[in-house]
Design a protein around this nucleic acid. Structure first.
Lengths: 100, 100
DNA sequence: TCGATAATTCCAGAATTATGGAAATAGTTC
DNA sequence: GAACTATTTCCATAATTCTGGAATTATCGA
């Protein structure tokens, strides 16, 4: 599950898509706009968006024939929390403001 | 680079190896012990350790014919920081103690 | 209804990654 | 130096993932 989220972000195009959606904020972006911004063929973008969606990192909302994708910040936070708790413990690896 | 770290952790065996090394602390563990603990064939473990090493998440120290692997906590922290800064910004996705 | 548009699904080929036994490398012990 | 141990590298195979054009689905506007 966390492995799926990691795998979803462990691919350059998908990481770029996700970062773009983070910048876009809660309203997200339309699939077509994402494709244009990143210069990805529609079918490739669709493949990667589906991957991110399966991993729970993005949500999709259909409006007419368009589809609006947005980052799921709670899921992302869940991932960061997982990494902090399971991959940082006992060794001062947590962010400075937490460790302090 | 961050993609490499994400990819390194985005595989069940490797995530298990890394978590085991986190629990082990700065002294790390011998390759053979890791293999025994996780029930992995030596060559498979070696493959995954090499992957983690390339990604900079673990360090290896040879002592005689044994090799001791340890988690690189600074690298892990760098990854968590990257995710917090680049994939959480502006939307309250940072850990509670940071957001507060 | 028709033609255009947004997006996904289908598909086949390319590329990458994972697996684990066997061979090789290097250090240890007697 | 011979036997033994720890680990890696080699290799072939299997499995998975990525890519993007073509076909498909669904919606829109005239």
């Amino acid at each position: 599950m966390m492995v799926d989220r990691l795998a979803a972000l462990a691919q350059p195009h998908r990481l770029a898509v996700f970062r773009l959606l983070v910048v876009a904020g809660p309203d997200g972006r339309l699939a077509g706009d994402i494709a244009t911004d990143l210069g990805l063929p529609a079918s490739s973008l669709s493949f990667h968006l589906a991957h991110l969606r399966r991993a729970g990192l993005v949500r999709a909302e259909a409006r007419g024939r368009e589809r609006r994708y947005a980052a799921d910040f709670a899921a992302m936070r869940g991932l960061v929390d997982f990494l902090t708790e399971n991959c940082c413990s006992g060794a001062g690896c947590a962010p400075a403001s937490v460790a302090a």
